[in-house]
Design a protein around this nucleic acid. Structure first.
Length: 273
DNA sequence: CTTATTCCCTGATTGC
DNA sequence: TGCAATCAGGGAATAA
């Protein structure tokens, strides 16, 4: 499932093929699903046809295509969404949801097995800022900010880290990895962490995310990049998916529990509090 | 305001 | 071997 490092890898791969391309036409498949929760097909036609994609940015897990009109085409891949670049006359790909045809012979396709991905248009360049906290690898996400959020947070650290208003882009895998790196129990009350712990956790979040970006993301369930290749970071993962395997620091078997409905892995010895 | 739970969806895996 | 139950989880909606 794409989290921040996977989304970052995807936009880096898309940029050379997509920036500067003018949108000639688009086709949306299986139009009755949630992709159209708020808008219909003619809405997307109106805002996309004739536009040139000027840049591709990211805030947390949201992909932001900046259009020449200054509107933004915003995509969230959720669990199983992925992009691919293909020729305009290529046949429909299984689970294809959206194809954007450029004026060249190239197209950009959104593929999504589980149909959770969302697409939207925004005319407000900052609309995601009010909806999300700072991006987890940006300067705005720092120990001071994290402390200001944690101090009034009664829930577990794990639950807080999954809150996109606190750390935009952190998902289930990297929340666990960061807690392990910082020796923090995912069940600890966020409000009870001391400043040293918060500083270490903040650094750990940035570190695990940056390391994963340099490894082109983690392929554990089904993430694939724009070329359909897996990432490499799954070989570096310390706890996620490593139930009963030895902790890399102390050899204790990794535990698995459920926290706010999410599988959560940790070392019961290294992460006591 | 907060925090927890349910739901959406489908392929892979597990259990009997 | 076969089929049903479970699991995977981001975020919207809902409940408390």
């Amino acid at each position: 499932m794409p989290e921040l490092p996977e989304v970052e890898t995807i936009i880096r791969d898309l940029k050379p093929s997509v920036i500067g391309q003018e949108i000639k036409s688009l086709k949306i498949f299986d139009g009755s699903n949630r992709l159209f929760l708020k808008n219909n097909l003619s809405f997307f036609h109106k805002y996309l046809i004739g536009q040139t994609i000027r840049d591709i940015n990211r805030h947390g897990k949201y992909i932001i295509f900046c259009l020449s009109s200054l509107s933004n085409f915003v995509v969230h891949l959720r669990m199983t969404g992925s992009f691919t670049i293909l020729h305009t006359n290529a046949p429909v790909v299984p689970y294809e949801k959206l194809r954007i045809n450029f004026c060249t012979n190239l197209s950009m396709s959104l593929i999504d097995i589980r149909k959770f991905a969302t697409i939207d248009i925004s005319n407000d360049a900052n609309f995601l800022v009010s909806k999300l906290g700072p991006d987890a690898i940006s300067r705005g996400f720092n120990a001071k900010f994290l402390q200001s959020k944690f101090i009034k947070r009664n829930s577990s650290v794990k639950s807080a880290l999954l809150d996109q208003k606190i750390a935009a882009g952190v998902g289930n895998i990297y929340a666990d990895e960061a807690c392990w790196a910082a020796n923090i129990n995912p069940l600890s009350r966020a409000s009870l962490l001391n400043l040293d712990q918060i500083e270490l956790l903040c650094k750990s979040i940035k570190l695990v995310l940056r390391e994963s970006i340099s490894n082109r993301g983690t392929t554990i369930n089904n993430y694939k990049d724009v070329l359909g290749n897996s990432g490499y970071h799954q070989t570096r993962v310390a706890v996620y998916g490593r139930l009963d395997k030895p902790c890399f620091k102390c050899k204790t078997k990794i535990s698995k529990i459920k926290v706010v409905g999410r599988a959560t892995y940790f070392c019961p010895k290294c992460q006591k509090n």
